[in-house]
Nucleic acid binder design. Sequence first.
DNA 1: CCACCTGCTGCTCATCTGAGCAAGTGGCCC
DNA 2: GGGCCACTTGCTCAGATGAGCAGCAGGTGG
Lengths: 314, 314
Amino acid sequence: MDESTELLAVRVAELYYEENKTQDEVGALLGITRWKVGRLLTRAREAGIVRIEIVHPRARRLDIERQLRDRFGLKDAVVVPLPAEDEEVSPRVAQAAADYLAAVRPIPRTLGVSWGRTLDEVARLLADGWTIGVQVVQINGGVSLNSKQGTAAQTAVTIAQKGHGQATLLPIPAILEQVETKRAIERDRTVASVRALGASASAYLYSAGVAGASSVHVDSGYLTESDVDELVAKGAVGDVVGRYIDSAGKIVDSALDERTVGIGLDELRAAEHAIFVVAGDAKHDVARAVVTSGLCSVIVTDEATAHALLEETT
Amino acid sequence: MDESTELLAVRVAELYYEENKTQDEVGALLGITRWKVGRLLTRAREAGIVRIEIVHPRARRLDIERQLRDRFGLKDAVVVPLPAEDEEVSPRVAQAAADYLAAVRPIPRTLGVSWGRTLDEVARLLADGWTIGVQVVQINGGVSLNSKQGTAAQTAVTIAQKGHGQATLLPIPAILEQVETKRAIERDRTVASVRALGASASAYLYSAGVAGASSVHVDSGYLTESDVDELVAKGAVGDVVGRYIDSAGKIVDSALDERTVGIGLDELRAAEHAIFVVAGDAKHDVARAVVTSGLCSVIVTDEATAHALLEETT
DNA sequence: CCACCTGCTGCTCATCTGAGCAAGTGGCCC
DNA sequence: GGGCCACTTGCTCAGATGAGCAGCAGGTGG
């Protein structure tokens, strides 16, 4: 587009978009036909002279969502735009996840949930009465060795309450010290029934943790910093429902995995709705592992993470 | 607008503006009628959820221009939007002035010009061949006591050259020390004919200076800093074609004014096209004085200045 | 010099869209 | 409960708009 055309396009755009004139009027005013006006407007939009943007905390990036679905064969994707500089993305992603959950059809009767800061936020932002009667089941062991007792339970309970349903908890450690203990616990009738309920869920909602010193597992005392360092050395990028995976989505340490209580990754892969919520720059690697290895059918994330996932040279 | 409607409006806007669907399609997708879609879009635009902006260095703010015209009874106004943080406004305003000048109809055969940094920039940005054959006349005395010799002349010459015409200069001091000298000079046949030519111009192009230590008159040695301080004490806000005015557009010091060579303010007020170019936060006060006292028929300025002019409680 | 291609222009026509209107809905006061 | 008012909803219809097409100008290579 040469300079005079561009200038004309600017004038046309101003009269059309800012002065709310019809294309015909604009044409008359500038001495050109209305078809030319229409074409200039199209060009102006394409050239980015006219920028139309949707400014809203609940807005989404449908174009990127489509790319994610296509590239990774997802059933669905939700991408939240980057907020203004001084705002956090995580509440927006959590809100989007809450919105998505409330809109899942058919309405899930049984919902398997993991726990963590992200899911906590989702629970908090979920609309009261988001559904009528839901069975919420914890799908992996909770935080309980030291502080923060009960936050894992709180997440599930909040989601259940707001959905006018009830929560079934799995109040046992996330990781046990001995395989035998883990097996023994799983044989327990109560625990087994919770596990069975979890396995039968029609939808799962979970997030991921980053493998590093700040991991929740270190915080809660299930693993030491050196345990995590070792996992990282073996290629771990993060954990999903308590299980550490490498960039290919494979279990990093099968012995550790044997001692981890809760749903297995294959169950997640087979699930109809496996809703994966992930936000923040630190989690790009785990997110990539989850998405490329088919661990989720739906991803809810922010624009930066989505870009990171798509930017890979495939 | 309640929250759920707002959320719906956001979804509608996304599908309509970002996915380029028709209102009918959007309606079908969200299970609402196309009329509702249309109304939601209107509301979304009004509420600022959908923001349409024109991003271009040559863009203008037509809404503000109209307000300026209406408020101050101007024949026309050109307002340039605020550029991105790291860019200057003055080149944009100068460009706009150049564009405006080239578009004045009927084409001015004789153009009276003042001088200064702003007008220099306008001359530089003027398109080559902006008109065919124009008589450019300097309307006030030039800078010449010390450095910068010839910049005033340069402005007029450039404008003339680019318009395939010729410049008539007024190569005498802007302010003389004695009224007698000034009168003597004006009686000179050559000078008188230039003044006459200037008075017959069909259009004038000029800017304004701020009354202060950094004034061009101090720089060029016509006035001392204390002279200017005194003018300020008497209420001067700035100068137009070398003449210092107060906030009401009145001459501040008639003795000084008597010693100033060039077009009179009343001639400007009576002119058909008196194009006033002004940019920058420092010039808000002079701009207000010029505009409220009818010194110009057209103003070319930036959005910040325009806002400052309109914000007054009248 | 001419056939050919490319990009622009103005047009027709089908579709899309907004203004305005009548009917419906829900809150609110008596 | 009845009636009033503000607001929303679905509709008609005219006007606005985009897709597609033929004609034309200007450049290009044989």
